[in-house]
Simulated scan of single mutants.
Amino acid sequence: MELLSHAEPLILEEPLKPWLTLKRNIQNIKYLPELADISFKRRYGSSIGSWFRKQYPKQNHTFEVFAIEADPTFHPDYATRKGVTLLPYAAWVKNDTLSFEINGDPGKEDEAKASGRGMGRIRPTAGKKMSGKVRSVQAFDFAEWLKQTVSEQDYVVMKMDVEGTEFDLIPRLFDTGAICLVDEVFLECHYNRWQRCCPGERSPKYQNTYEECLELFSSLRESGVLVHQWF
């Protein structure tokens, strides 16, 4: 808990321009290897190989990198990255089939559908009706996979961008105890943020608020998890 006192403060007020806040916030991030020696642990990396390898201070250690990505659009890119293990599924609270909505950001719906990029929500097949193009994807129990893959002796960095399902996955990690296996988290929390295209309008893609995201970040820090806000 003492290490967390040296972490960058959480942004308490909702950013009016979150796309700019990320650029500024990256400069303030206090990475765990900058606060402590990680040489006593085995290394497991972030799910995003390119960002992790360029930005994360690894103290000259080699990390094993896993990319969990259900959208097949990105699979060829991961196939070209050496040292990256691709898991072509969606991270979820159980083994299941989910609906992946391709609806894009406001003003970019046609672009998203044409490229096949899943830029929308991920929901169980029995969930609410979706407005965009829908693709079924296989999902797996992320918490159980984590418990079977790493141990407390491993140094685990997790970058989570799961299109709103963080409000399901984070509680599941706590309930199963899998959160204790994670040393550092970079979390993008999805909420009804202000839109870049349309001043004064919020995104209709997500129903959660910034206050709920802040509660999620605060609960992680209060539990001893070094989590960083990602926008």
Score class of each variant (00 low, 15 high):
G132I: 14
D37Y: 06
L3Y: 13
L220E: 13
A67Q: 01
N103Y: 08
K133F: 09
E215S: 03
E211L: 03
F142I: 01
E188G: 03
S99P: 01
F63Q: 04
F186I: 07
F40G: 14
P171Q: 09
T62W: 04
S218T: 15
G83A: 05
F140Y: 06
A126Y: 14
N60Y: 12
H6V: 13
R193V: 10
M160G: 03
P171Y: 07
R172V: 06
D37A: 10
G116K: 05
R43F: 08
L3G: 04
S218G: 11
N103S: 15
D154I: 02
F66E: 00
R81I: 15
A90R: 08
L22Y: 14
R117T: 10
Y206T: 06
I68Y: 00
T97L: 13
V225H: 07
N192E: 15
G200Y: 04
A91Y: 01
R42H: 07
K133A: 10
L181K: 14
D183Q: 01
D161L: 06
C198Y: 12
G104T: 14
L220Q: 12
E222T: 10
G49R: 08
R193L: 08
T73C: 03
A67D: 00
S115H: 09
A67L: 00
K147T: 08
E152W: 11
K113G: 01
S203I: 13
G120E: 11
L12E: 05
G107T: 02
D175L: 14
R43V: 08
S47R: 02
V185H: 09
L86F: 11
A79P: 07
E188Q: 12
E201C: 08
A178T: 12
F186A: 09
L146F: 00
K113N: 03
A67P: 02
P33V: 02
H228W: 04
I122W: 05
Y155K: 04
L216K: 02
I38M: 04
R42W: 03
